[in-house]
Simulated scan of single mutants.
Amino acid sequence: MDPIRAYHDGSLAVQTRVGVREAAEHVGRSIGRGIRPVAAAFLELQPMLVIGAADPDGRVWSSLLTGPPGFVRATGPTTVSVAGGVPARDPLAGAFAEGRPTAVGTLALDPRTRRRMRLNGTAEATPRGLAVQAREVFSNCPKYLQRRELYAGEGPAPPEGARRDTDHLTPAQREFAGAADTFFVATLGPDGADASHRGGNPGFVRVLSPTELTWPDYQGNAMFLTLGNLETDARAGLLFPDWATGTTLQLTGTARTEFTATGRAVRFTVERVVEREHASPLRWSPPEYSPANP
């Protein structure tokens, strides 16, 4: 196989600015192209998968796919199948077609064990769902991941409720995002798409207006994949799950990184909002907050 190019120029620029190039080079050696047996076993246990991609209009979204354990499984050293594909009412429903590989970022995250695995590459539709071809596979540490127990919903999904589309956050949506302890962010860069996790204590996301919010960029693994992508392409998508009800709040827009003397923050401008009631059948317990949360 060809060697992995761990970072593109955007990530390298952020790493250099922050002063973590040496640490990033060390971490980058963990990125591989193949799916190891332990990773394949982890995937088959998961009832959910977060993906990130652009819709046919070029907007970037982060979406939540769910199913019985085994709905995501490795079918070869670099291939994964996702049974069911993207739900028809999801903003990414039209993003993938047969015979047309499309950039995708995926994140398998298990709140029960605080483990997560990222697999980025391309995906195309199949009669059964999605076929994903891996470009890079790696695990992340459990930092800022809240522990939760799953108590319902690993079976087939019941019919979901209403879908609401707007170009701004309603007061209820602003309150929900501002109280979140977890969300997911999708970005695009020269090497493809990426889906990542952000976590903290409630209030770490600040909603500044109906069309703008911000969050701090906490110290992580020094890779700067998300911020690196934003250096080259401002498009981004956010996913806020309601762990208790299965409702999802999806935002698409643009984001930029703000560097200050005290740290970094990302400012996101909302262009479109999709709220889907009971989009996920999964029901999770209240969180046990990560000891790493500031």
Rank of each mutant, 00 (worst) to 15 (best):
Y7D: 08
G94A: 14
V18C: 10
A152S: 11
P156M: 04
G161V: 08
L12S: 12
Q133N: 13
E25Q: 11
V137P: 06
W243T: 02
G199Y: 00
A125D: 02
A24Y: 03
R114V: 07
A172N: 06
G34T: 15
L12T: 11
L65N: 11
P287Y: 05
R135N: 14
P101E: 08
H8N: 09
D57R: 15
N293R: 05
E258N: 11
A108T: 07
V205L: 04
E44P: 13
G237D: 07
N120D: 03
V60L: 11
T247K: 02
T102Y: 08
S11D: 07
R100G: 08
W243S: 03
T78L: 13
T260W: 07
A179P: 03
V274M: 03
G94N: 12
A103E: 11
T66D: 13
R135I: 10
G189T: 00
G34L: 15
P281Q: 04
R198V: 02
L64T: 13
L43P: 12
A97W: 14
Y289K: 00
D191I: 09
G28L: 07
R256E: 11
R36A: 15
A134E: 05
L107A: 05
P281N: 00
R36G: 11
G105R: 02
L239V: 05
E271L: 11
M223T: 09
A179H: 08
S11R: 05
P101C: 06
A265Y: 13
T245Q: 05
G85W: 10
P281K: 00
T252S: 10
S30R: 15
R128N: 12
T260A: 11
I4T: 09
D191V: 07
T170E: 07
